[in-house]
Amino acid sequence: MGELADLITRYHVLLAFWMTVRLTTISALGALIIGTIVAVCRVSPVGVLRWFGAAYVNVIRNTPLTLIVFFFAFGVLNTLSISLADPHSPTSIADNNFRWGVVALSVYHASFVAESLRSGVNTVPLGQAEAARAIGLSFVPSLTEVILPQAFRGAIAPLGNTLVALTKNSTVVSTIGVAEIAYQMKNMIEFSPHLLYAIFLLVAICFVVLTLPVGAFFTYLSRRVAVQR
């Protein structure tokens, strides 16, 4: 037990845990914003936008997350040298890896958010949109005032699933050197293989601590804000 506690301090497990939390929350926000835009495109009356929305979901959702992460890290950051961090900062490399990791996670999970929202839109009866149009609201205000608020409420449960998946998928960015939990897990195992099962348990607990309350909260929320019809 003492040895494990030693590992936790030596490998900055708490810091790594905090990194996972940051990765997850920032990527979740990014995915929510991109996903909402894509979902709006998918239900818009403009053919080109609908096509774009469908293409985004179909391409991104069916591409492995690892590939998307590598694409941003090696294809965009290293090869095209598009930097998201101050090149003179001493933490420039780590910042870049983190930020492109967030971009990759956001872009990938946005496709799931968009599909959740689209299923939420489908829970809104057609009459709601007709009533919105009938009082003179044009497309954008009927979306923001009437359709989306109800769609989000109908999409809370699947959005919660996506957030849980995102939390765990954030481990993929350990492959580009972001020092989150899975990254430190690899290091710990490498240098203390005799503690293998204890390390697995430790990391598993870290994730359960994050995902269990999230799941419970979303279940509560989906009941709480459900639209009564």
Binding site: A131, R133, G136, P149, Q150
Partner: peptide, 23 residues
């Protein structure tokens, strides 16, 4: 477009299923 929205604002509609905004 906008012209249609403006016109609809001037034409009230009452539906069979009420269609009040549920939220």
């Amino acid at each position: 477009g906008k012209a249609l929205a403006r016109l609809r604002a001037d034409v009230g509609m009452v539906f069979q299923q009420f269609n009040l905004f549920a939220h």
